[in-house]
Amino acid sequence: MTLDVDRREVFRYLGYRGHEADEKTKMLVEACISELNLAAEPKVVSKELPLVTGEDGWIDGGCFQTKSMNLSKNLGGCGQVLLMAVTLGMGVDRLLMKYGKLQMSKAVVMQAAAAAMIEAYCNALCKAWAEEYEKKGLYLRPRYSPGYGDFSLSCQSMILDGLEAGKRIGITLTDGGLMVPTKSVTAVIGISEKKEPCHVEGCEACGNLDCAYRRSWQ
């Protein structure tokens, strides 16, 4: 499967902060993306569940329960959530490990390209879902993942279990709560009857203005 990877994102992850890369690195990025396209097997599971919110950021998303002010703000006015888990599969982890052992310059570029690739995959899925829901007069909020803001990482396992992501697309959790394959994402997407066009999402929603990887540096 070929995903349209945003090259600017790859360089951003590599710390270029808007600087133009040299030709040699650009060629390396292209080589890595080609290899990743052969190795990646993007897979997704998703499920729509009823949403109940309460005081102080209490959220019951059907298969996970938590307190998060940030997420509850994101989900304000939504009656359902769409839960998603996606992964690029073990082939990508194998490539990352291979070059981590053999050629670090390629490993770091591969890492950045794979991160951009899973973002591209998530974006493509969310765009398609948004169009699908819009036909039903429903609108999707930006996806929000455990670990963003005060949305606890411990929800990861509940979401994965609720989606049967282990059995169906092979995402496992280590004792430390990390997903393997490492290029995997879980997220919660609010479903609302109201259209709210101006959402701040991703990097711009984050308070760390100093971050070396922040989008729109310059």
């Binding site: 590599l14 710390g15 600087h19 390396l28 670090m104 310059s105």
Partner: peptide, 14 residues
């Protein structure tokens, strides 16, 4: 100084 980036640093190291 921010004029050489990580992939280049590593290619030089290699």
């Amino acid at each position: 100084a921010g004029t050489v980036f990580l992939p280049q640093l590593l290619m030089s190291a290699e």
